[in-house]
Amino acid sequence: MIDPDNPSELPTGPAEPLARAEIGLVTVSLVVGFVLLVVLALTLPKNPTQWQPPPKAGINPPK
C-alpha cells in the first residue's frame, strides 16, 4: 500500500510493457474515434449565419 506521507512511494520505477489488450483498446479507440468524427463532420449541416463581433471594447472608447 502507498503511504501518502512517504513521497518516495509515488510512482517512480519503470512499469511493465504494454500488453496486447492495452494496444487493442488504444488502437480501436483511435480508429473508431477518428472515423466517427469524420462521419459527423461530413454529415452535420453547416450553419450559414456568420457571427458579427460587437463594437470593440477596449480601454479607449471608439470615437
Binding site: 488504444v26 479507440s29 483511435l30 474515434g33
Partner: peptide
C-alpha cells in the same frame, strides 16, 4: 473518450512508463 483518453494513456504508459 476515444481520442484524448487513448493518446494520454499511451503517453503515460509508453513515454513516462507509468503502471496501468
Amino acid at each position: 473518450y476515444l481520442i484524448y483518453w487513448a493518446l494520454i494513456y499511451l503517453l503515460a504508459r509508453v513515454v513516462f512508463r507509468f503502471s496501468r
